[in-house]
Design a protein around this nucleic acid. Sequence first.
RNA 1: GGCCCCAUGGUCAAGAGGUUAAGACACGGCCCUUUCAAGGCUGUAACAGGGGUUCGAAUCCCCUUGGGGUCACCA
Length: 491
Amino acid sequence: MERQVRTRYAPSPTGYMHIGNLRTALYEYLIAKSQNGKFILRIEDTDQERLVEGAVDVIYKTLKLCGMQHDEGPDVGGPYAPYVQSERKDTYKPYAEELVKKGHAYYCFCTKERLDALRSDAESKNQTFMYDRHCLNLTPEEIEEKLKNGEPYVIRQKMPREGTTTFEDAVYGSITVENSMLEDQILLKSDGLPTYNFANVIDDHLMAITHVVRGSEYLSSAPKYNLLYEAFGWEIPTYVHLPLIVKPDGSKLSKRKGDASFEDLINMGYLVEAIINYIALLGWSPDTNQEIFSLSELEKAFNISRISKSPSAFDMNKLRWFNAEYIRAMSLDAFYEKALPYLTEAITNKTIDLKKVCKLLQARTEVLTEIPSKVGFLNELADYDLNIYVHKKMKTTLENSLESLKAAVTVLEDITTWDEATLHEKLLTLVEKLGIKNGQMLWPIRTAITGWEVTPGGAIEIADLLGKEETLRRIRIGIDRLEKAVAAGNA
RNA sequence: GGCCCCAUGGUCAAGAGGUUAAGACACGGCCCUUUCAAGGCUGUAACAGGGGUUCGAAUCCCCUUGGGGUCACCA
């Protein structure tokens, strides 16, 4: 029987979920779910100096929001608990000591100062620094002595000096490096906690992780991990290294440079589903031309073999398109619910039917945050440039706009049932009677009642929204202003 | 700089020896139309360069160039 697929998302709690991280989580989730496997959350907090308050909550919240529920983790428990590395601190040291006994690791008492000196020395000579294995030459007695004296120490992995190490990656294939390039990396820090490089191997093994998924920035350290598995005699997991997500200019996404985090995107008005859909396609492609995927569709379609190797640029423009697609695909009620917070903030005119506004807005909204800028005219009629009335394509001028508005008023005044259907019928009948083009009537009306050159919705929808009284009031203002302008123009 | 990885339009990408080199975003045009959108149709645009291998190369190999990653008691 095949081993059950188990992937783990192992973030360090920095309080910031950047897009690359989120995509890694997504792919781990998809790899597991596409094969009926388990998705595990493990918190890698072995760096005590970088702990951030509340950061773990950000991780829980994001996974939940995205619908990527983990099967095991600190909050939900599981057979391999605990799932927080700082709570597992005692499990690592014995493994490190086992490696020392087997001759794959050794104690190192070098001070930070000595290391720094070595490093800057190498730097000044323009050489690459690599630990000089100073402590490898210590005799067992010396080591015993130092340990007894309580001297601080770390445990280093002893790399082979000759030969090469090869490992297989599910997306990058076979990769070989010279062992002489491998540094004797630290496995156990002087504070007794493991480094990521060590903890990660131990935990992945203990937690029976079958697919180790991570960004390609770990590609060059993978041989070291491989050596560790071999030293322990453990089964090597399937490595799945993911291509980086970069900025349009090709550089790496970073918090420091203010690149948008998942949370930022949400605040910018992007929908969770659209973000997930978009990043799923950054580095992976389905074997069909389908572009719109729900999470559960992704779970079915995802396949490791279709992950690409080259880095992909995060394109806001395309995300925007996905977002617009998701917005348009929503039911009116669903859109209303999403839009409501933006609407209530932007529309102070309480007589406006927000549901109707949504109907106009839905196809015209790409991101939620742009809603307020589209509806201001509903609150009040601002002063506007009369030249808006003059529209070549609509064949309107100040004069015929004035005519149309005057004619419209007489018709509108008589309407008792103020709704779109009635407005449509009466106004178009009037157009026919006057023998003019639709635009010559409707453009001036829309202009008069909005004062804007561009609005969501046309004359009829907006008149309906504003109500009879306000519509007539605004039209009369238009008539008044146009009369003065025309008179002045003729004088 | 050493080592590793990558290379198809501006961007995401399909392609795994023989294709008119898909599709999507963006951009342009046309249609629809009471503005703007949405929708429909349509156009511009790519195999980084050079050598091989082969009857035949975007696909395989090598070199060059370009880009990226990594070289911590960080993950």
